[in-house]
């Protein structure tokens, strides 16, 4: 009995140390050092929060660049992927469907090689990025739909260049562009 009581006390002390003091200490430090990051990297437009820099959004309108396909339709509660195996017929059909849709809606040649992140759903269902190539393939549609002048078109090309993130430290990861941030800036092109 005595040893059981001692075990419980040790467990409770370790709970206080690792379950309460530790997370509170970390919260304190990071709220002081990086409050925006620790609070979800939220982006404010006007005076309303319109999203997080890190969490992708669903874009159905032809006026916006499309995000990657998502098996949770960018609803983060809960996040997740399709978990389809490669021999799953549903996946094969979905890829063909997405490919056709991407080609038709972007006025592309049927033989265009489409970056594969636009055909496959992401792991989290919240992936905010696509490759710069996938963004460039959508420019024609955006320009046409928004009725952009050649000047505005150039501004859009500059924007894509500006928002393309190179590999971190030129070493880790790969070049990518944040669709949400891109669309946010797209609305400011006058």
């Amino acid at each position: 009995m005595k040893s059981l009581l001692r075990t419980v006390i040790i467990f409770l002390i370790l709970t206080i140390l690792t379950g309460i003091i530790y997370p509170l200490l970390v919260t304190g430090i990071v709220q002081l050092l990086f409050p925006e990051k620790a609070n979800g990297s939220l982006i404010v437009k006007g005076n309303k929060i319109c999203g997080s820099e890190l969490i992708g959004q669903q874009f159905d309108s032809l006026a916006y660049f499309s995000s990657r396909p998502s098996s949770v339709l960018y609803n983060p509660l809960p996040s997740g992927g399709s978990n389809y195996g490669l021999t799953n017929r549903k996946l094969v059909n979905l890829v063909t469907e997405r490919k056709n849709k991407f080609i038709v809606s972007n006025y592309l040649d049927t033989l265009t090689v489409i970056p594969s992140e636009m055909l496959f759903a992401s792991a989290s269902g919240l992936d905010p990025h696509i490759s710069p190539e996938a963004a460039l393939l959508q420019v024609k549609r955006i320009v046409k739909y928004r009725g952009f002048s050649p000047e505005q078109r150039d501004k859009l090309s500059d924007l894509i260049k500006k928002l393309t993130e190179e590999p971190q430290f030129h070493l880790l990861g790969q070049a990518r562009i944040n669709v949400f941030l891109l669309n946010l800036s797209l609305d400011t092109i006058k």
């Binding site: 919260t27 990071v30 050092l33 990086f34 990051k37 319109c50 999203g51 669903q58």
Partner: peptide, 21 residues
């Protein structure tokens, strides 16, 4: 957390996306 991993005790944040969803 400095790179963007959340660390807070806030309520879940309800937002309206660019498309208004």
């Amino acid at each position: 957390a400095g790179q963007g991993v959340v660390q807070n005790f806030k309520e879940y944040e309800t937002i309206h996306t660019l498309e208004g969803a």
